[in-house]
Design a protein around this nucleic acid. Structure first.
Length: 431
RNA sequence: UCCGGAGUAGCUCAGCUGGUAGAGCAGGUGGCUGUUAACCACUUUGUCGGGGGUUCGAAUCCCUCCUCCGGAGCCA
């Protein structure tokens, strides 16, 4: 009797198989009862008929509880009455363990309760679906990069200083060297990487000790940073657009079931796989003001502004050429207007907010140096970064993708906390 | 940090012009041969977030602390 996965069940119609999993639910109706079984790959309904199994097996329904682990043997059978179209006519059930008092019911629960029970909540249908989409997004990003000449280049998580100097860092005692800080981006290190490898990326957790308390923020989240030599602003945007559109197509192709479980509006995702919109920061300000925003000339976009900008747009919107004052020191000036930098943020539609921040980098030693002095940065710490502009400096660009934001958008999740297995937020460190 | 909201049964919530706690779900028992978060009947369960105050009497009014949620700022 072969052990098969529920996702492959349609290849085994009218054949006897063994399934190994957990009881998602059961429904009984006298001399027939239904066992809803999940095994990680999918979910299937089992039918147990009194006159087709031993009395012992039939009576297992009295002890089976939600999330009990079981090994089920039976005949796969196509049946329209079953959710999913296939069911298993049960011949035998072996109980691995009876779960007692599983706390999460198939009913409404509050966020706090679910987060307290995150280690169990992970088993629920929607969480299962979101985490599978996360896997697809992760895989698609690396697949795109690998196919486009990017080499994986892991940057350190323990760093001596801030990448951008402004946001709050998590501090870690570091032997006799004082404090180290958890990285909030590997970007600066990637700039060293491209001078060796041409195109590089890193993909890992980054940490921001910001006291943000919104459904779009985590203190620990996964970011993919990519950096490429001899790539300038326009091409930088082109790479980003191609990457995101590749991710959308991958999710649509590989996660149809998951999107259905999540009741995600697939049409919205399909429509987003089209040429992205592009506007300058100046244009964005003008547009926002015409729509009632009180944003200033040199203002950063607020959450509401992001919503307004993408309202009525099926595709993500690039906002480019920002005032230098509100962007990071390493961004390259626009040659047509030295008050602007060649940075761009990509705003996802449907209110999911910023998913990418990127820019062409300043490659002139003296201009970068002046900027760092102006921002009162510790030059000793960044000497190595300045060095990169002394030994064969080239124009180069890069960007960072927030994995959870992208997963949140793809899956339509209300909470970013659901887009990572164990979310870290300002008031939650466990489980 | 600031602004707003919420803590009542295992869970989701009602009760809040002060009079001693209630529903649905989960759990338990029984019924039902096609259920779809099945259904029907019966049934167990409470430091009413902690502390203090007002009152004959507080889940309800006042003070305070704690926890959580949403948002702002900052950002992916």
């Amino acid at each position: 009797m072969s052990w098969v996965l529920i996702k492959d069940i349609k290849d085994y119609n009218d054949r006897e198989v063994t399934l190994k999993g957990w009881v998602y639910n059961k429904r009984s109706s006298g001399k027939i009862w239904f066992l809803i079984l999940r095994d990680g790959s999918g979910i299937i309904q089992g039918v147990v008929l009194k006159n087709e199994v031993s009395e012992e097996v039939f009576n297992i329904k009295d002890e089976l509880t939600q999330e009990s682990s079981v090994i089920v043997q039976g005949l796969i059978h196509e049946d329209r009455r079953s959710p999913g179209g296939y069911e298993i006519v049960v011949r035998d059930i072996k109980v691995v363990q009876i779960a007692t008092d599983y706390p999460i019911a198939l009913k409404d629960h509050g966020v706090e309760f679910l987060m307290d029970n995150r280690h169990l909540w992970l088993r629920s249908r929607k969480q299962w679906a979101i985490l599978r989409i996360r896997h697809t997004v992760y895989y698609a990003i690396t697949e795109y990069l690998n196919n486009n000449g990017f080499i994986r280049f892991d940057s350190p998580l323990l760093t001596p200083n801030a990448c951008e100097g402004t946001t709050t860092l998590f501090t870690v005692p570091y032997f006799d060297l004082g404090n180290a800080y958890l990285s909030q981006s590997g970007q600066l290190y990637l700039e060293a990487g491209i001078m060796s490898l041409g195109r590089v990326y890193d993909f890992g957790p980054v940490f921001r000790a910001e006291k943000s308390k919104t459904r779009k923020h985590l203190t620990e989240f996964w970011m993919m940073d990519a950096e490429a030599a001899y790539v300038e602003h326009d091409e930088n945007l082109k790479i980003q657009e191609e990457l995101i559109r590749f991710v959308i197509r991958s999710v649509l192709e590989k996660n149809a079931t998951e999107l259905e479980v999540l009741e995600r509006d697939i049409e919205q995702l399909k429509k987003a796989d089209a040429p992205f919109k592009r506007m300058t920061h100046k244009e964005a300000i003008e547009y926002l003001r015409s729509r009632g925003s009180e944003i200033s000339d040199k203002g950063d976009l607020g959450a509401k502004d992001e919503v307004i900008l993408t309202e009525g747009s099926d595709v993500p919107v690039f906002v480019e050429k920002w005032p230098k004052e509100i962007k990071a020191f390493y961004m390259k000036r626009d040659k047509d207007n030295s008050n602007l930098v060649l940075g761009a943020d990509l705003i996802a539609p449907e209110g999911f907010g910023e998913i990418i921040g990127g820019s062409q980098r300043e490659d002139d030693h003296d201009l970068l140096y002046q900027r760092m002095v102006a921002e009162d940065m510790p030059l000793d710490e960044y000497q190595w970064f300045l060095d990169l502009r002394k030994y064969g400096s080239v124009p180069h660009s890069g960007f960072g993708v927030g994995l959870e934001r992208l997963v949140q958008w793809m899956s339509g999740a209300v909470q970013i906390r659901e887009s990572i297995p164990f979310a870290r937020t300002i008031y939650r460190l466990r489980p």
